[in-house]
């Protein structure tokens, strides 16, 4: 037979990739859903401590990061419009903007975590254990959930950079942009999770 590899039919189905991407997004939603269950149970069990501990976080930094992520969501959504209109330059520029905003988010996060850690507030620290159970759990969840979220940002950075390269090489173009679209979906998911993390950790004091 003329086959050269295990699978010969090059079968392109953008709709299938999109359903697959959505299903993946659902798994991510449930992954964080599990953490939101833990958060809500412990908040219910330790209401006062959670409110006081949330007061320790800097609302300004949290708000700045929220706005950064929202803008980055818009830039990547716009990059799809640009792609559909066949504007390669603008697509790359918008993806670059998304990349830059994602980095800005991480830098903010780095300084935020850094200052908390230098104050002795990190999982398993003695200072935290002195504060009591509610604070221990709040900061445990804070580091775990924002950490897992930051990990998703880092993965997003890599994927967006990869898509930029693909757009640059015209392997993703105005009639074949499922990859860009799915990356966009992933990036919006990261934004969605943050939309809930932000009020739960920074605002409800």
């Amino acid at each position: 037979m003329e086959q050269t590899s295990g699978n010969t039919h090059i079968h392109r189905d953008d709709e299938a990739s999109k359903i697959g991407m959505w299903l993946f997004i659902f798994t991510e939603m449930l992954l964080f859903g599990g953490l939101f269950i833990v958060y809500s149970i412990y908040r219910y069990l330790h209401p006062v401590a959670f409110e006081l501990a949330a007061g320790e976080l800097d609302v300004a930094v949290g708000t700045a990061n929220t706005v950064i992520l929202l803008i980055s969501s818009m830039t990547i959504a716009m990059s799809i419009t640009a792609m559909q209109k066949g504007n390669k330059k603008l697509t790359i520029a918008l993806l670059g903007a998304t990349l830059f905003l994602a980095l800005a988010f991480l830098v903010n996060k780095y300084f935020e975590w850094g200052s908390k850690i230098s104050h002795g507030l990190y999982p398993g620290s003695d200072r935290l254990h002195e504060f009591g159970h509610g604070d221990t759990l709040f900061f445990g969840l804070y580091y775990f959930m924002t950490g897992l979220h930051a990990l998703h940002i880092i993965i997003g950075l890599v994927v967006i950079a990869f898509v930029m390269y693909r757009v640059h090489r015209e392997m993703v173009h105005s009639t074949k942009f499922a990859l860009l679209e799915n990356t966009g979906l992933y990036w919006h998911l990261v934004d969605l999770i943050w939309i809930f993390l932000f009020p739960l950790f920074y605002l409800v004091t």
Binding site: G34, L45, L137
Partner: peptide, 29 residues
């Protein structure tokens, strides 16, 4: 829809062992 929940739970067990966070430890609340 079910597997991710155990996924994150296992991650929490790992974090618990490595970082002593206290998610499921009655001594830490």
């Amino acid at each position: 829809i079910a597997t991710p929940i155990v996924g994150v739970t296992l991650l929490m067990i790992i974090a618990e062992r490595v970082l002593n966070i206290g998610f499921f430890n009655p001594a830490l609340g």
